[in-house]
Design a protein around this nucleic acid. Structure first.
Lengths: 187, 187
DNA sequence: GTCTATAGATTGATAGAC
DNA sequence: GTCTATCAATCTATAGAC
């Protein structure tokens, strides 16, 4: 594997555990097995690394959403897969979505990275809004009246549920927090 | 006002904007108007400061919840006041709940501070579970079946909604995310 | 209780050899 | 592309005068 990819992999893994301010070039160098100074050859500044990390994550997440949409049988099925995506990202409370992890470090991020976060949210909201629109047609989720509000509520719910699970280092709060939403879906 | 309180006030304000790793003793000294070294007289280490900050916040929050419970006319009224508490804490997306702000900095917090966060969550969940239990009796919130799941969902929702609003530096996502929950309450 | 002065570690980043 | 060596800045924390 090329070094640049290895750096992004390690950066993402640590950032999802400890946030953007929670990792240094020293940590990264140790994880990848090269010296600190060599990182600057691939990413001249930490801001550039942060943006590249978030951009890659956003695209990978978008691909996952597209895959879910193309393979799911109903809106309910898509919602279950969506929640499972966040559930699996937890790894028992140890890691969270990169976007959630960076959101609280807002002030130490540059504009390009903040724009990535904003795009991540917009894309997720659009995908979810489409999901709830479809749910009103196929009836696979109960009591859907306002798709935009459902989408925003759903995104806030999974992000907050991840935060709770992370704070406790235990996935249980995530499952309890999402149980009622899942209970609205039909088999 | 005594210096110790001023330090806690400033620390809380900055931490709610930038997280625990987002402020230094230098920032704090500048905000309060004393020298860095003087802070150590009141809080020997940053870990001690962090715990004191979270402990004070937890108690103040508990007092606010008690006040809401004693003055509200119904479970629905309590829920509206609860959500408004988180809404007002936002200040247009600039600040978030201290507990939300510290949750992503988990790895840089000591055990005592983590315990405070855990207690904050437990107290909030218990308060909310009691609220939804009462809602099933007075009927002021529609479709409440499982109080524990409703409580956990509600806490995750307001925390996630704050995170979204903070990431966008705009309170609008918070209002949209909480609209459907508020719509279940009766006048 | 607050100050000056400083310690020791770590931060992101640069220069230049190989 | 990776290295050694080094930079200036910042970090939390301590010692001791006032």
């Amino acid at each position: 594997m090329d070094t640049k990819t290895a750096l992004l992999d390690s950066a993402e893994a640590i950032a999802r555990q400890r946030g953007f301010n929670g990792f240094s070039y020293a940590d990264l160098a140790a994880a990848v097995g090269i010296r600190k100074a060599s990182i600057h050859h691939h990413f001249p500044t930490k801001a550039v690394l942060g943006q590249a990390m978030m951009e890659r994550y956003r695209h990978a997440f978008g691909d996952a959403l597209a895959e879910i949409k193309s393979s799911a049988h109903s809106a309910a099925d898509r919602l279950r897969n969506y929640i499972e995506l966040y559930r699996n990202a937890l790894q028992g409370g140890k890691t969270i979505c990169l976007c959630v992890a960076l959101s609280s470090d807002r002030s130490s991020l540059d504009d390009a990275t903040l724009a990535e976060i904003s795009q991540f949210h917009s894309a997720s909201l659009a995908w979810l809004e489409n999901l709830f629109d479809d749910a009103r047609l196929d009836g696979s989720i109960r009591n859907v009246a306002n798709s935009k509000q459902e989408a925003t509520q759903c995104l806030a719910l999974v992000e907050g549920a991840q935060l709770m699970a992370h704070a406790r280092a235990d996935a249980e709060p995530f499952d309890t927090a999402t149980a009622l939403l899942l209970a609205r879906t039909n088999a």
